[in-house]
Simulated scan of single mutants.
Amino acid sequence: MNNNTKSQSIMSGILKIIAFIGLFIIEQLPMAILTIPQKNLKPVNNILPYIVIALTVVAFLIIYFTYKKAQKFDTVAFNKRTWVYILGGVVAFLIINYLTLLLVPSTDNSNVEALSSIAKNYLLYFLIFAVFLSPVFEELLFRGIFMNWFFYRYKYLNIILSGLVFGYIHAPDVSIKTFGYLISKVLLGIVLAVIYRNTKNIKANIAVHMLNNLSAFFIKI
């Protein structure tokens, strides 16, 4: 690789990092608005649901079409192998969540606190977002885009990095109290990355992610 090609590769990587951060901000925007204290939202309270829905639709379209352009392979239809990975992913999630609950019962961090605040004030949207929208957005972003943009040729590095970034995003304020929560999210991210690499179908990831989030209403994680 000559210097010119190397420089272009580095620049391409930097631009993808910036683009990924931008996509993450876009994905977070609808929920971020709902974390604003209600007294500050009084001027737009009547139209707030429409604003959030509109932003959610726009965010989805941007992230979805970016994913469609980013994916380096043709999607493989569901088959027996896909269902085996889905079942294995669900079992892995249950084990990881259960062990995390035993080892570190506290999951206090800024991300959890923000979600708790939204659940308190906007319960219906929170339920829809947590069970359905969040898995779709996060799988498109952290598996569909991230894994195709960064180190795709290096399978294991690709999988581990996806898990690490996914984990850190869910527990950014790392401490002794939240370390177990961070580890659980890293492991969950790695499981989802393995499913994506081996099934080559983002819908398999979304299905497993939805089932995991749904289980959170029955198991405190």
Rank of each mutant, 00 (worst) to 15 (best):
N4A: 11
K6I: 09
Q8T: 08
Q8S: 12
Q8G: 11
Q8F: 10
M11D: 09
S12N: 15
G13A: 07
L15T: 10
K16N: 08
I18Y: 11
G22K: 12
G22L: 11
L23I: 09
E27W: 08
A32S: 15
L34I: 08
T35A: 12
P37E: 12
N40S: 14
N45A: 14
L48M: 11
P49C: 11
V52T: 04
A54P: 04
T56Q: 01
V57M: 06
L61I: 15
I63Y: 00
F65E: 14
Y67C: 12
Y67A: 10
K69S: 14
D74K: 15
K80L: 13
K80T: 12
I86W: 00
I95A: 07
Y98M: 07
L102Y: 05
S106N: 09
T107H: 00
N109S: 06
S110H: 07
N111L: 04
V112Q: 02
E113D: 14
A114S: 08
A114C: 06
S117K: 04
S117Y: 05
A119V: 04
K120V: 07
L124G: 05
Y125P: 01
F126R: 00
F126W: 05
A130Y: 03
A130D: 06
F132A: 06
V136C: 07
F137N: 02
F137M: 05
E139I: 04
F142E: 01
G144A: 09
F146C: 02
M147Y: 02
N148G: 05
W149H: 01
F151P: 00
L157D: 05
N158K: 03
G167S: 03
Y168Q: 05
Y168N: 03
Y168V: 09
A171H: 02
A171P: 01
V174W: 13
S175G: 13
I176R: 10
V186Y: 00
L188W: 01
L192F: 15
Y196L: 05
R197S: 09
T199F: 02
N205F: 04
A207Y: 02
L211R: 07
L211D: 06
A216G: 13
A216R: 10
